[in-house]
Amino acid sequence: MSAVLELEDVRSGYEGVEVLRGVSFSIEAGELVTVVGPNGHGKSTLLRTISGLVPLRGGEIRFEGRALDRHVHHTAARGLAHVPQGDMLFPQMSVHENLLMGAFLCSDSTELARRMDEVLTLLPKLAERRNQQVSTLSGGERRMVGIGRGLMMGGRLMMIDEPSLGLAPIVIEQIYEVIAQLGKSGRTILLIEENPARVADLADRLFLLDNGEFIWSGPPAELLASDELISAYLGG
């Protein structure tokens, strides 16, 4: 057991507002960890801080034992794949080109072909839409492009930010099927989700983020069983 990602007393925020107020945790290889919590309490900021999009104000972030420097484009090189909230795709590019951008740092063509193959097998819809411009896709298809692009990065840790955001329930189910498959394949995943019920069967561990701090952690079933936590923090 070795920690892939370790956070120690991480603080960060935007102009004058501290969003994360001392967050510590670590993820072991092969784990699927989920951070849940109400909106606007720093879930996305956590991921954005790890990948460097939001400046670190204090504490330390270590990836595979070494501190992450604060250049966003270096995190990808280190092996960290961030699937950001709202997809952040390249709208005027085709699905294929978006996927290729995921493997921007991969210069080995056989490895690239292998990853492409893997992604298209896992997400056959993308093979159909290969040459379509991303801006013409549906919300669910875009989400798949986002996840596919993240997979193309070939990272050893995948951070997925609210994959269910803004999608119809039936599409959410499809997306979570894909994430479940990824989890089963032994990948290390840090997942953000608002609704703990959705990740009950999926996550190894759950963290409850409230007001910029972890106030609870443990197995999903335990959280779901606690009416007190649910009603106090998740409005359930």
């Binding site: 990808a76 795709l89 590019m93």
Partner: peptide, 19 residues
Amino acid sequence: RAIRATAQNRDAARLMGVA
């Protein structure tokens, strides 16, 4: 491709490793 990606979504391009 990196140039077009940066033009279309700078932060996403940086996440993909584009300087």
